[in-house]
Simulated scan of single mutants.
Amino acid sequence: MKEKLIDLFEYTNHFNKEVIDAISENITKVDDKTISLINHTLNAQQIWNARVLGEKQFGAWQINPFEDLVEINHQNYLKSIDIIQKFDLDKRTEYQNSGGTKFENSIFEMLFHAINHSTYHRGQINSLLKQNGIKPLLTDYIFYKR
């Protein structure tokens, strides 16, 4: 199971970077919503990693300097892989959401949610790119594996 989860984070890392690159290449055409969504996508993975590791969390909708996004994505990837390799993925962890409500999930569930969440928002970003006259990226997992 750990190998498959690592593969999914490699996929997530790869296409997050591709989306950041596409936005960068078309920065004068993208709208604020696109910038907000790529930041939120990266922030969410950082938040889920931080919940597992007990680290300080980003704001879910904070806007980071654009030039930092590639490094944030890379650090997210490294931390997710480190969690997979060092933690029992069945271990349940208690955390609080941004509203202060307490929840408990397995580390696997938390990490899988981060992957799924990224995929969802990359789809939204692709729709926005298309609306702004930018060719959307093929970010489906199957394209990554081809």
Rank of each mutant, 00 (worst) to 15 (best):
residue 106 S to C: 07
residue 38 I to E: 00
residue 4 K to C: 06
residue 143 F to Q: 09
residue 70 V to H: 15
residue 54 G to D: 04
residue 105 N to S: 12
residue 99 G to N: 14
residue 141 Y to K: 15
residue 87 F to P: 00
residue 79 K to D: 01
residue 36 S to F: 13
residue 77 Y to I: 01
residue 122 R to T: 10
residue 122 R to H: 09
residue 30 V to E: 01
residue 32 D to N: 12
residue 28 T to K: 13
residue 37 L to P: 08
residue 18 E to G: 11
residue 13 N to I: 00
residue 134 I to W: 09
residue 64 N to L: 09
residue 5 L to M: 11
residue 139 T to P: 08
residue 75 Q to H: 05
residue 93 T to R: 12
residue 110 M to Q: 14
residue 109 E to Q: 15
residue 62 Q to W: 02
residue 31 D to G: 15
residue 64 N to T: 02
residue 71 E to G: 04
residue 96 Q to H: 14
residue 103 F to V: 06
residue 69 L to N: 03
residue 67 E to I: 10
residue 22 A to W: 02
residue 142 I to S: 08
residue 118 S to E: 01
residue 86 K to Q: 11
residue 104 E to P: 00
residue 89 L to S: 08
residue 52 V to E: 01
residue 95 Y to H: 09
residue 101 T to G: 03
residue 23 I to S: 02
residue 42 L to N: 13
residue 89 L to Y: 04
residue 43 N to C: 05
residue 33 K to T: 12
residue 84 I to P: 06
residue 27 I to P: 01
residue 6 I to A: 06
residue 72 I to D: 01
residue 59 G to E: 12
residue 2 K to R: 13
residue 145 K to F: 06
residue 10 E to V: 12
residue 77 Y to P: 05
residue 32 D to R: 09
residue 54 G to N: 06
residue 128 L to W: 02
residue 111 L to N: 02
residue 19 V to W: 08
residue 74 H to K: 14
